[in-house]
Amino acid sequence: MSVAEDTLEKTSSQRDGSAVPTLVVENLKTHFFTRAGAVKAVDDVSFSVKAGEILGLAGESGSGKSITGFSVLGLIDPPGRIVSGAIRFNGEDLVTASPERLQDLRGNRIAMIFQDPMMTLNPVLRVDTQMIEAIQAHRKMDRKAARQRAYDALEMVGIPSPGERLNAYPHQLSGGMRQRVAIAIAFLNEPDLIIADEPTTALDVTIQAQILHEAQALCRRTGTAMIWITHDLAVVAGLADRIAVMYAGRIVETGQTDEVIDHPLHPYSVGLLGSVPSANKRGDRLNQIPGMTPSLIGLPSGCAFKARCPRADDHCDATPEVIEEMPGREIRCHHPHRQEAGA
């Protein structure tokens, strides 16, 4: 935490006494207009991330978690479109920003890490060429200094003998190593925000552990805000400060990691956490959520989870509004698992 900023911004941040959020997303709606009908991939999503904070955005396939990330980056292509809402990055609205402005921000102030590092890496260019280009695209720096900066960045993400790796082509590196290089590139220009879309999903357990460890340390050190998109709650449990759980295009629950994992309020979070094997007795049947992930086309009105929810009743035909259960803890549910007295 940078002390200077902290004291400066104290007045404007009343609730939890920290700085102004780096990113504020308000009522974001991103829809895709396909032949089969409008797909409400992101439907009224609001969240914020502060400097140095890691937000875990968890959800299953089709929950809209990746599209949320792409919306922030301005990477939604037709037939998709941001229908309404605001994305404020350091106070600047990205929804109305020009493509040139977004281009300038991307890779500079906002960086991204994909599941497949080859989305970032060019297979025919050496690692150093790509990293130097990434630096020089956004700031004036001579080649030698830029190369030194690239060297430092590789060292920072725990790559052994960075000098050799700089001279390598991406295909000469292992999958874990490539992902590290992609992460190093993301951190190159010391961005204010990094959006990481399932960056460890394709990696092995021991390699994943290394990368989680390094990403966490880097955010703490550089004060970069991070959105870590994943389907695996166990990954964000060990990584994120706060968690937002998405289901069918909406955030159904947000809160501090410990609170969401230990005391989930939304029946979907409860079901998801309860179905994990470690939450069940060895050898017993697992608690399962019945049914399947709903189609986003022609989603019935009301709560999207009602068909699978054990607590659903007639109230659930009305779309639940976001309720602030307690400071920093929001849910979208008519029947949350509140701890009632005597329960």
Partner: peptide, 21 residues
């Protein structure tokens, strides 16, 4: 690229919608 992904999932979802009916 983003479009491709969503288009696929949209297609899969469309298939799913049919099975649900």
């Amino acid at each position: 690229m983003t479009v491709e992904i969503t288009q696929q999932s949209a297609d899969a979802d469309a298939g799913l919608a049919i099975t649900q009916e």
